[in-house]
Amino acid sequence: MAGIGYAAAEPAVTGAPETAPAARPSRAGRRRSGVYYLMVAPALLLSGLVVVIPGVLTAVAAFTDWDGLGLRPNWIGWTNFRDIFTDPVFLQALKNNFIWMALFLTVPVAIGLVTALLLLKRGRSRTVYQVVFLIPYVLAPITNAILWLNIIYNPISGLVGYLRGHGWQVSAPLADVHTAIYAVAGVDVWHFWGFLTVVYLAALRQTPVDQVEAALVEGANGWQLFRYVYLPSIRSTLRLMSVMIVIFSFLAFDYVYLLTQGGPAHATEMLSTYAYTAAFSAFQFGKAAAVGLVMSGFGLLSSFVFVWLSRKES
């Protein structure tokens, strides 16, 4: 779950008071609007260049047989989509992405939430814990992957090798089709949960103190305090993080590629590794673009759900 580097922002709830019907803007107002547009223009231009144009080109490429090199690909309609949806490897990758999403919506969220609640009661040491928990998150994925490959999963010198050397018949988790995806996800969860802890802790600390104190005066126990005071307070943060987790679950690539490259026997194949192989091994960039569109589709879907839920609440 790499690349999430955003603040746990609250959804925008305007709550603007009702106003009179809009009057025609004055000359000063129009000038001010012009300045605003001018200030936004660089960001819009940049977005257009690095997001919109490549996005549109990718969408077009998905309907061609582009090999990534020539400039005259053939238009082949829906062929790439038909090919991928009848390919068992693609379906396996899709299934793995859903497993990944389910794992990340539960395991690191639970660990992060519990840890944040425990840290809530700590004093100054809270800062030290947060820094320690964040270390795996700030390390580069290649560093984390090499650490785990050599220190834990290595059958010669790692933990696996050590246990075997002491008579334990331990199978190599990355080499087993039944455990590989959990072994890879384990590394990513290890790197990710500290980040969630910090975000949840920040949200928990925003809970109004008077509500907490009132609940305690009323005799609420720990669970009731969490269920009826803290949880409603951090609900929007939980929702936002969940949506981001869903989006990034369908973009998962780095740890999978670094640890298993999608193997063994596609046991850890993800949509991203499937697309990467199609593009850079088989020179099927059109097919890879089609997979990319499917991946984006899931991200967009979860974004819409998030916006819809936010509006519903506001």
Binding site: H266, A278, S281, A282
Partner: peptide, 19 residues
Amino acid sequence: PPATQTALTNIDTVWLGSA
């Protein structure tokens, strides 16, 4: 050729009983 190579890389699906 490239796509044939990529397909053959997946021979481990037979080795591990997936195909």
